[in-house]
Structures are given as structure tokens and as C-alpha cells.
Design a protein around this nucleic acid. Structure first.
Lengths: 143, 143
DNA sequence: ATATTTGCAAATAATTTGCAGTCGA
DNA sequence: TCGACTGCAAATTATTTGCAAATAT
């Protein structure tokens, strides 16, 4: 068995989550994908490998991951929720043209506001939208 | 007729939106409320004054406002979408205890990232979650 | 008059829930 | 065997759509 699979298993065990076949597969998928897949994408991809997989299990599993803080929700305002296995602080950029979602580094000390002086900030979400560099370069080509 | 209502009407007209009774009422409500109401809140409040109002109209109207950029969507990850008539750049803070959503000022030059050097940023969204100052002070009182 | 807006009811789509079958220690 | 996990189908909920009635210029 691959080392990656082993490390995923122990990651789950460390968070008191039993590493079932489905859970390991889902976390593996989430970590391997950079594009922050939706429930539907996760399901559609993995059902090829796990024909008995159900969407309910994908939902259950992701919610378990969120609760254990080994994954986070990406609320780039869209109809469907997207998920990210990278729980460290970073921003997201969604290209309006190609639809890709990019991660970007962000200074933790950044984005402060005096208005929140006596507030306890537990989660920070930063997301931008616009046109990515690739689409800007290809401006002349397409529609 | 109040000056506020007049200014709302001209605001709508300036954006090529016919200032129907419902639209004026909805924009007025959105501007008067600081708490970024959901469709349901807008509907439930305004239907008291406008008994014939339908949710469809609230949805239609808000989408018209969004398209004209006189309102913006607040995607504080929740089940329902919230709306904000303040379209200037600012952040939102949601208190996990009382559920209130607070605005906070944010430096426009803030939250930059080298990773986005060649990206065209058109929209910035920043929202935090945690406990607000009021709830922190009342920590000892409640549940 | 005529074009736009409104509002009901039905349709969609994402997510949750109830519960029965399955699996692993 | 027992409790947790899975997965189907039904339920729920936010939003959209089709279309007819109402409204305004």
C-alpha cells in the first residue's frame, strides 16, 4: 500500500475518524485535486472506482472532515459548495472566464481592521473574482 | 413623500431601473437594515406592508439590483443568500453566537498577494467568523 | 395600447434525513 | 455479535421558470 494512503489513514486516526475505504478515498481525492471539487465532482469521479458509492456518503464524509477541521468549505458564492483539504490560511481566486479556482498566499497579519478590535476572529475567508493570467493572455483567441 | 424615497427613486432611475412600488420598498428596506437580510426576511417584513408581494418579486428585484451593481451578494457560507446595499469595499464578520453580521472597514490596498500579480481582480470578498465583542462581554451570563 | 412588472404554482437542484442493510473489530 | 458506516429513497429548502393577470405610461 502506498505511503500516501498510509499517511491519510493515520491523519484520519489522529482525528478520531475511522479510516474506512470510502473516507480514505475521498480524502485522498480531495488532497490530490487542486481545484477544490464539489460534492458532485467527487462523487462522479470516485463512483468509477467505487461503484457502490453514494452521494450521501460523500456528504457525510465531508461533514465529518469539516467537523474535525481536516477540510474546509470554500464559499465562493455559487450554487454548489466546494471543499478544500488545505486548512491553512490562504485566499481563493475564481476566474470568471475559465472557472478555475486558484489558491493564493496571504499574509496572516494582513486584512486587519480597527473595527474588530474587541472581536474574537476564529475563521478568515478571503476570495476574489476576476480574470486569471492565462485567460488574460489568451484574450485575443476566444469568444 | 420623504426625501429618502425620492433619492431611492432617482438612484434606481440612474441605473435604468423603473422605480416600481415594490422595488423602491425593497431597496429602502435593504438600505435601512444593517443586518444584511435574506430573501425570506425581506419578504416576511415587507409582506406586512404589501400583502400582495411575492417571493418571486423579491428574487427578481434583488437580481436586478445585483446586475445594476446597486446591491451585492454576501456569501457568508450559510444556506441562504444575504444581500447588502452597501457596494463599497468592506468586510463582514459573522458572530457564531448571536448570528449577527457586522460590517468592518478594510484598507483597499490590504490583502494583496504576489501570487496574483498578473491577475485582474474585479471583486474582493472578505469575511470572518468568530465571537463579537458583545457576546464576549456577556460570556458569563448565558448558556 | 402595449410593454413591463408582478405573482402564483410548478419545476429544479443541492442537501438532509430516516431507516434498513452491510461491514469490520 | 454489536455498534458504526453506508446507501437508497423520500423529504426539505432555496431558487428559478412559465405563464397569466395586473400595472403604468
Amino acid at each position: 500500500m502506498s505511503t500516501l494512503k498510509e499517511s491519510i489513514k493515520s491523519n484520519l486516526l489522529n482525528n478520531n475518524i475511522k479510516p474506512s475505504y470510502q473516507r480514505v478515498k475521498i480524502l485522498e481525492f480531495l488532497m490530490s485535486r487542486k481545484n477544490h471539487p464539489s460534492v458532485d465532482e467527487i462523487y462522479t469521479e470516485l463512483v468509477k472506482e467505487i461503484p457502490t458509492l453514494s452521494k450521501t456518503t460523500v456528504y457525510n464524509t465531508l461533514n465529518t472532515f469539516i467537523a474535525a477541521k481536516i477540510a474546509q468549505v470554500l464559499s465562493i458564492e455559487d450554487t454548489e459548495t466546494r471543499y478544500d483539504a488545505n486548512v491553512s490560511f490562504h485566499g481563493h481566486f475564481k476566474c470568471k472566464k475559465c472557472g478555475n479556482i486558484y489558491d493564493f498566499r496571504l499574509d496572516t497579519t494582513d486584512c486587519k481592521s480597527d473595527d474588530l478590535d474587541n472581536f474574537l476572529i476564529e475563521e478568515k475567508n478571503v476570495f476574489y473574482k476576476g480574470i486569471c493570467n492565462t485567460c488574460l493572455e489568451n484574450k485575443n483567441i476566444d469568444n
